[in-house]
Nucleic acid binder design. Structure first.
Lengths: 361, 361
DNA sequence: TTGAAAGCGCTAACAT
DNA sequence: ATGTTAGCGCTTTCAA
C-alpha cells in the first residue's frame, strides 16, 4: 500500500522482465500477449505501484513540470492580485495535461543565484510572472536554455521573450477616450510603479489620447503612484490641495483608484459628483465593495491559460521564435465617473461597451 | 554556459574522479588538498555547472521539495483569500531553506487519483490547504506514507493529522462576547460553508457564548451562508424581510459581512446605526474599502510559516506524533458595530483589544 | 512476444 | 587525500 513498490517488484510478481512491466504500464500492452498484460496490470494494482516520477524524469530527460516564477520585486504573492488569476489560468491548463507546477519566488536580485534555482533540471520550462525593469529574470538568455514565457509585462522586442499580456495601450486608450467623451477636459492621471512596463504603457496611452483629442495635459495633475492603494490616497491629498483641480482622474490601476476614493471620502469630496475617478484592472474587490468603480476589465485567467499553452508549445517545438499575445480589455462602466457637466451633450461612442458585463473595446 | 555540463564534465576538466568533484561541490573540500578543491571549483564555474536536482533527488532518496495541495473543493485559488497568505508564509519559510514548492490542485474527488498525483515520489511531504469534510485529502493514510500537515481546518483528533490553524472557537467567542457587551441582545448569525469545519466551530462558539450570557438564540436569525459575499447579501435580504430583526449580525467571515452590508446599503438600511455587522478574518479589502468592518484578525501568514516548519520537522524526525497548533486571533474594533442603545452602559471588557491594531484576545 | 544491457546524473559506502 | 563501485527507479535501444 505504501509508496514503496518499484517497477522491479511489479515485474517480479508478474513474472516478467522490468522492460515488459514498464512497457505495459505505459500503455504499450498491444506488444504483448493478452495474459501478460493482465498479469502486469494486476500485479501493479495489488502492490499499489506508483511510478516514481523522479526516476522517470531522469531517464526520460524531461520532467513534465514547469516553473512559475514570481519576480523578486513582488515581495509577497498575496498582494499581487494579478498573480492569482494568472496562476489559476496556468493551473487550469496544465493540471489536466499532467504537468507539475513548481512555484518559485526568488528573494534575491542576483541573476546567477536566481537562475540556479530556476534551471536546476527540475522543470521543462518556465512562466515568468510580471518581470519588472531590471529584473534578474530578464537575464534569462545568459543563464538558461529553458523555454520561457513572460506574462503580465509587455516587454520590448529586444528581450526576445515570448509573452502573453493584456493590451495595456489599447485598453487605456479606450478608457481615456471614453472619459473625454463624458465631457471631461480637465483630467488627471495617477501613474503606476515606475519599474513596471505596464505603468509606462498606460501613461503613454493616456498622454497620446489626450493630445489626439486636443485636451490639455497639465503635468501638475499627473502624479506618481506605485500601484498601491496608499499611493492613490497620497495622490489624492496632493491633487486636492491644488488651487485648480481636474474634474476627473484616471488611475493606472484599481488599487490606486480605491485609495484615491477613500481619501476623497475622508476629505468629504463627492465621487463622482465633484470628481470622477476611473481605475484599471477590475480588481476582485473593486466591484463588490460599494465603490462601483468604472474601470477596465481584462481576462487575467486567460492570460495564464494562454501562457501555459504557449509554453508547452515551445517545449514541444524546440526553439520556436518568440511570440507575443495581447489580450484586449473591456471598459466596464459603473458609477465612479459622471459626465463632466450635466449640460454636456452625450457624444457618440467609438468603442463598444456595456454597463456591467463589459465587452471588448 | 547552457545547463548541459554534468559532474563528469567537471571531474574531467579538473582531472579528478567524479566522487571528488561531488564531494568538493557539496562543501566537503576540507577532505582534499587545497589545490584540488580550487581546480574543481574553478572547473565547475568555467563550465557553468549546475547540479541536476532530479539526479540528486534520485540518489539521495529525498527531493528537497514539498507539495502544497489545495483541496479540490476550492475550485479556484484566486478567490481563496486564505490560501494566499498561507502560501506566502510557507514560501517565506521554505525558500531560504532551499526547498522547492510544488503546487498541486487536484480537480477530482477520487482519492486514489488525487494521491497518485500528490505522492509520486517528487516531494518529501505535503501541506494540505483547508481540507473540507469528505475531502479526498483526508484519506491520506490509505494512500500515502508522506509526512503531512493540514492548515486552515481544525480537524477532529481521529484524523491523526498534524495541523496548524487559527483558533476559530476562541476568536469567535471573543467577538460574540464583545458584541454582547456592546449591549446587543438581539443578535443574528450567518453561518459559513457547511463543509468547512471552521464554519461549525465558529457557529458553535457563537451559540455557546450566547447561552453562557443568557442571550436568547433565535433560530430564524441564524442563517445559512457559504462564505461567499453573495450568500451574505442573500442572508441580508432574508433577514431584513422578517418582522422582528436583530440589532446586530455576526457573519462567519468578512466576505459574507461585506455582502450583507452591501445589501443593507441597497435597501437603505444604515450600518451600524440601524444594524451592526461584524465579520471574521480581516480580509485584505475589508479594511480599506470604506466598510470599516469590525472583525477578527489573525495571522494567516504565520499559519503557513509554522505549518512549513512543522512539516520539515516531521520530515526530519520520521514519524513524530501528530501535533496541533492553534493561533489566537485578535479583535479589531472598527466602525461596523455600534453600541446597542445609546443608553446602554459600557460594560467592562474581559478581553484585551485595540481600536485599530488589534491585539491578542 | 519478450528480455538484457546500457544508461540518465548524481551520491555514498567502502576501499586504497 | 582520492578513487572504485554499486546503486537510486525508470526508459530505451537493440537482440533474441
Amino acid at each position: 500500500m505504501r509508496g514503496k513498490a518499484t517497477l522491479r517488484d511489479v515485474a517480479e510478481r508478474a513474472g516478467c522482465s522490468i522492460t515488459t512491466a514498464s512497457n505495459i504500464l505505459q500503455g504499450r500492452s498491444h506488444l504483448y500477449r493478452e495474459d501478460m498484460a493482465q498479469r502486469v496490470l494486476r500485479a501493479a494494482h495489488e502492490l499499489g505501484y506508483r511510478p516514481n516520477s523522479v526516476a522517470r524524469s531522469l531517464a526520460r530527460r524531461r520532467t513534465a513540470a514547469i516553473g512559475v516564477v514570481l519576480d523578486p520585486h513582488h515581495v509577497r504573492l498575496t498582494h499581487n492580485v494579478y498573480a492569482h488569476d494568472v496562476l489559476d489560468g496556468i493551473l487550469a491548463y496544465l493540471e489536466p495535461r499532467d504537468y507539475d507546477i513548481r512555484l518559485i519566488t526568488p528573494r534575491t536580485n542576483d541573476a546567477a543565484t536566481v537562475w540556479r534555482r530556476i534551471d536546476n533540471g527540475s522543470i521543462d520550462g518556465a512562466i515568468l510572472i510580471a518581470p519588472v525593469m531590471g529584473s534578474p529574470l530578464l537575464e534569462w538568455r545568459h543563464y538558461s536554455s529553458l523555454p520561457v514565457v513572460a506574462v503580465g509585462s509587455t516587454l520590448p522586442d529586444e528581450y526576445l521573450l515570448s509573452q502573453v499580456d493584456i493590451d495595456n495601450d489599447a485598453a487605456m486608450a479606450g478608457l481615456v477616450e471614453w472619459v473625454i467623451q463624458q465631457g471631461h477636459r480637465a483630467i488627471g492621471f495617477i501613474k503606476g510603479h515606475p519599474l513596471h512596463w505596464s505603468a509606462h504603457q498606460r501613461e503613454r496611452a493616456f498622454r497620446r489620447v489626450m493630445m489626439l483629442n486636443g485636451v490639455p495635459l497639465r503635468e501638475e495633475w499627473i502624479l506618481q503612484g506605485d500601484y498601491g492603494p496608499e499611493s492613490g490616497a497620497l495622490a489624492a491629498s496632493r491633487l486636492l490641495r491644488q488651487k485648480e483641480q481636474p474634474t476627473a482622474v484616471i488611475a493606472a490601476n484599481d488599487d490606486m483608484a480605491v485609495g484615491f476614493i477613500q481619501k476623497c471620502r475622508e476629505l468629504e469630496i463627492a465621487v463622482p459628483d465633484t470628481i470622477s475617478v476611473a481605475g484599471f484592472d477590475d480588481a476582485y474587490w473593486a466591484q463588490r465593495v460599494g465603490l462601483q468603480l468604472t474601470t477596465i476589465q481584462h481576462d487575467r485567467y486567460q492570460v495564464g491559460y494562454l501562457a501555459a499553452q504557449m509554453l508547452l508549445h515551445h517545449i514541444e517545438m524546440g526553439d520556436a521564435p518568440p511570440q507575443r499575445i495581447l489580450i484586449p480589455g473591456a471598459l466596464v462602466v459603473r458609477q465612479s465617473v459622471a459626465p463632466a457637466h450635466a449640460l454636456a451633450s452625450m457624444p457618440t461612442l467609438t468603442t463598444t461597451l456595456l454597463t456591467e458585463g463589459g465587452s471588448r473595446l
